[in-house]
Simulated scan of single mutants.
Amino acid sequence: MTPLLVALGAAVGAPLRYLVDRAIQGRHDSLFPWGTFAVNVVGSFLLGLLAAAALHTSAPIMALLGTGLCGALTTYSTFGYETVRLLRGRARLLAVLNVVASIVAGLGAAAAGVALVRLLTG
């Protein structure tokens, strides 16, 4: 049952990632990968929420939303590829900015998700 829940979550997360990435990137005339950055930060926030709520959430819900949805929504491989692409295109400053901003914003978003759950659950 768990693999099916993961697959169902991923079936929503992967197309959502693609659509959000294209919508955001299409609005920016920049080499910086804004779409990937956005889905990774949002996914980190959602996973922070889910991880903090894990004490109150069933394992099947975590499989569906945590592993499936967030796992497919976020994309470390695309982040890596886009960073290398920026380096190869001699956009070193953007590559460094992508790495630093993605790590800081992702960790901050996850921490904010945890903090929100703690605030709401006391």
Rank of each mutant, 00 (worst) to 15 (best):
Y76V: 04
L5Q: 08
G66N: 02
A10M: 02
L107Y: 15
A110F: 11
F37D: 04
R88H: 15
D29Y: 12
A110C: 12
A38D: 01
A7I: 06
A53I: 04
L49E: 03
F37K: 03
N40C: 01
A54I: 09
A52I: 09
A14Q: 00
G71R: 07
A23K: 07
V6D: 06
A63L: 08
A54T: 05
L16S: 03
H28T: 12
V39Y: 07
L31P: 13
L97K: 13
F45Y: 05
R92P: 12
G113L: 07
V20S: 00
L97Q: 13
R27Q: 05
V12P: 02
L107R: 13
A7Y: 05
E82Q: 14
R85T: 14
G9K: 04
L49H: 02
F79S: 01
S102W: 03
P15N: 05
I61R: 12
L8S: 02
A51H: 11
L49R: 03
W34R: 01
P3F: 02
V39K: 03
L64N: 03
V100R: 14
L55N: 15
L31N: 14
L16Q: 01
G108I: 10
A52W: 07
P15K: 05
V96T: 14
V39D: 09
L93P: 15
R90G: 14
N98P: 08
L4N: 03
A23S: 11
D21T: 04
S44Y: 07
G122Y: 10
W34H: 00
T74F: 04
V104F: 10
P3H: 00
I61W: 13
R22Q: 10
T2W: 07
P15L: 05
I61D: 10
E82M: 08
R17W: 11
R90Y: 13
A59M: 11
L73P: 08
W34Y: 06
G113M: 12
L93R: 15
G35M: 00
T83L: 07
G13W: 01
A105E: 11
F37S: 04
D29L: 13
L19M: 10
A63D: 06
G89H: 14
V42E: 02
V99R: 10
T75Q: 05
N40A: 03
V117E: 09
G35I: 00
L93E: 15
L4S: 08
A52Q: 13
L55Y: 14
V84F: 08
T78F: 03
L64H: 05
W34G: 00
R90P: 10
R90C: 08
A115W: 14
S77V: 02
T2I: 12
A105F: 09
A54Q: 12
A109Q: 09
